[in-house]
């Protein structure tokens, strides 16, 4: 009898939590479909016109730009992080401890502080306002993050594998390429997903560094639908959904793997 109570209570708690989580999401769906920002979920006449208006404008292009920028930032992050993470995990060299500390240190500086100097650096490089410039800016966020996560994945690989490869005469570089890299592939996928999400959802840096309509990312276009003098809430809500749905789908599919990176990345120092 007690068991039944417990089961019922657990389900009730989960259902309540889900309802609380879902209300804001459903509200966005409702605004997108009715163009009516009142609180009730049932008011307003359904219409696809905000969605159509949004997609026929610059938003479609911005989605493509967002995808390109986010992919490039992810790739750049992974390229610069994978070897480094392996080195920090497997090689012993002077400066390793300091590097690890420095990496953590960069996470504690507010990115606000970074934006003024990065602006100047990109100007010197002639990359201000370009998408490549934004990719570099995003990489300053994704590289340390990817190094941190991937180091966790490399740490989790048993050292016996390296020892065996070493006995066969493999160099560190070969161990990296032939042994470690193939084994952390799932880790790379998860890390990449987070890096992608970070760039895909980013707004302030994109608004600061981009200044041409055709290079705007989706969040910038979305935010420019809203200002002090009024807002196209229907379009804003439709855009919010379009931006969020791909990430939701990936989460839904990869949800089991999502956690592995964070757990492994976290457990070992």
């Amino acid at each position: 009898m007690r068991k039944h109570w417990l089961t019922a209570a657990l389900h009730a708690a989960l259902a309540l939590a889900t309802a609380v989580v879902l209300y804001p999401v459903l509200w966005i769906v409702k605004i997108a479909l009715t163009n009516d920002p009142s609180a009730s979920l049932a008011s307003g006449d359904p219409s696809l016109s905000p969605t159509v208006a949004l997609l026929s404008g610059r938003f479609s292009r911005a989605l493509v730009v967002s995808a390109i920028v986010s992919l490039a930032a992810t790739l750049l992050g992974l390229v610069f992080a994978t070897t480094g993470a392996f080195a920090l995990s497997r090689l012993r060299f002077s400066g390793r401890a300091v590097s690890l500390r420095a990496l953590l240190l960069t996470q504690m500086f507010p990115s606000l502080l970074m934006s003024v100097p990065l602006y100047l650096i990109l100007k010197w490089l002639g990359l201000l306002g370009t998408l490549s410039g934004l990719v570099i800016v995003y990489s300053t966020v994704s590289v340390p993050f990817c190094v941190w996560m991937l180091k966790g994945f490399f740490d989790a690989l048993p050292t016996a594998l390296d020892e065996a490869a070493k006995l066969d005469g493999a160099s560190e570089l070969q161990i990296f390429r032939r042994v470690a890299l193939p084994l952390v592939r799932p880790g790379i996928a998860v890390t990449g997903l987070y890096a992608f999400m970070g760039a895909w959802n980013e707004y302030i840096l994109a608004a600061t560094f981009l200044s041409r309509d055709e290079s705007y990312t989706a969040p910038v276009v979305l935010k420019s639908l809203v200002n002090d003098f009024g807002a196209a809430w229907g379009e804003f809500a439709a855009g919010s959904l379009i931006v969020s749905v791909p990430v939701m789908l990936v989460f839904f599919v990869l949800e089991r793997h999502l956690v592995s990176g964070l757990v492994q990345g976290g457990v070992k120092e």
Binding site: V243, V247, M248, F251
Partner: peptide, 11 residues
């Protein structure tokens, strides 16, 4: 339950 994580936080 993980939906909030997938929505950009400015939204």
């Amino acid at each position: 339950l993980i939906l909030p994580w997938a929505i950009p936080n400015y939204i």
